[in-house]
Nucleic acid binder design. Structure first.
Lengths: 211, 211
DNA sequence: TCGATTATGGAAGTGACTACCATATGACTG
DNA sequence: CAGTCATATGGTAGTCACTTCCATAATCGA
């Protein structure tokens, strides 16, 4: 490991940290790339060599969490479908829970800047696609279309659970048992259907029953 | 209804059509906004008055389909949760099936242009949020957090089914029964779990059973 | 027909991002 | 240690999406 890679990692980290700092302080939209480059004491063209877009400065952390979980799953021995998905979900949640402030910051920026939300969603989409691919590799069936369909639906369910749990977690700053919610949501995978609250919505008393 | 609104609708349609044409012919990334404006014989600033971003030129159609379904659902009498979701899903699929070429074009552009994919996902996210909101309004329960959680998970499931079915539909140009797939996927909402193909993935013979 | 409202087009500017090139810096060889 | 090579950096110039603002033209109400 040479001095070069060490320095590279250092500047990369420096840029990302300065960017995060400026984004939190002044907002994503009110921070220019030039300002970030100046704060990190590098030229703008150097910054672009490390981070292809402004959004990656914010979202690389999420990308690592999601793609890391898929990569980990690829190395795991075959297991039951629901169990495998559950493991992936827990892996992602573990990773995100490791630095909650960053997760919150990402969600805040996504809330107030369309392009951040958009790229975050694109990231989640890629996670879904790669997970689908891996599930297909692990599955077998007579009809490849049905296999692909099942895999995509499963990966989507995992994605849905992650998004929902993380969303609830971000909205309720403290005193929320993320794991309990996640466990509840997993019922979706195991055939329990949507876990309903105590009082379920039924047809209203005075309402015509719709078609 | 005055002449003004009529003309407005006409230029709007004209711009969108010319844009679609150019995008299909030269690709999204290789078409500039100025070219579109020139083709529609309007000034660029007029174009931006109708369409805030280049992406909306492509995605407005999808937005209308999704948001229209939610708006429709808002006007419906209360029904069972799974039935309601199923109705919304079918509504969206109906709308998309009405012009398949446009759906395919959108997916193609999303495949080759990141920002289109990103904004498409952002749109789907908004659909999910609005559907969640409406579900919350229709639900009751002792714990508002659990209610919100259930609603978000349900809306996410609906979104998942739509995305999966449409994705399969786009990938397999012809001879695919979209409705059969959709019906199959609905089992997820009714508590049937993930519908599995004939041969389900099990633990491999030579694999260690790992945690 | 006249005044008010609104749509349009153009100009000028900002900022993200790209392509390119000259230079500086760490890495390897004799 | 000197020389050379690979790579990292910084700067310049340019493209393009998008914004703001203003002058003008088209429509509408009276």
């Amino acid at each position: 490991m040479g001095l070069r890679e060490l320095k590279r990692e250092r500047t990369r980290r420096l840029i990302a940290d300065k960017a995060f700092e400026l984004f939190c302080h002044h907002g994503f939209g009110r921070t220019t790339v030039e300002q970030i480059a100046a704060a990190a004491e590098v030229g703008p063209s150097t910054l672009y060599r490390y981070f292809p877009t402004k959004e990656t400065l914010v979202l690389e952390f999420v990308e690592d969490s999601l793609m890391g979980a898929v990569a980990w799953f690829r190395g795991q021995p075959p297991v039951d479908l629901p169990d495998g998905l559950q493991a992936v979900i827990e892996r992602v949640l573990d990773e995100l829970e490791r630095n909650p402030d960053r997760v919150r910051a990402v969600y805040e920026m996504a809330d107030q800047t369309v392009s951040v939300a958009a790229h975050l969603q694109a990231l989640i989409w890629r996670f879904r696609e790669e997970l689908t691919e891996e599930l297909v590799r692990r599955m077998s069936g007579p009809d490849p279309v049905v296999v692909k369909f099942t895999a995509a639906l499963s990966a989507g369910s995992a994605m849905n659970i992650i998004e929902t749990v993380v969303g609830m977690w971000v909205e309720n700053p403290d005193g929320l048992d993320v794991r309990e919610l996640a466990r509840r949501a997993m019922g979706l995978l195991h055939g329990g259907g949507i876990p309903l609250p105590a009082a379920v919505p039924g047809p209203g008393d005075n309402a015509r029953h719709g078609s």
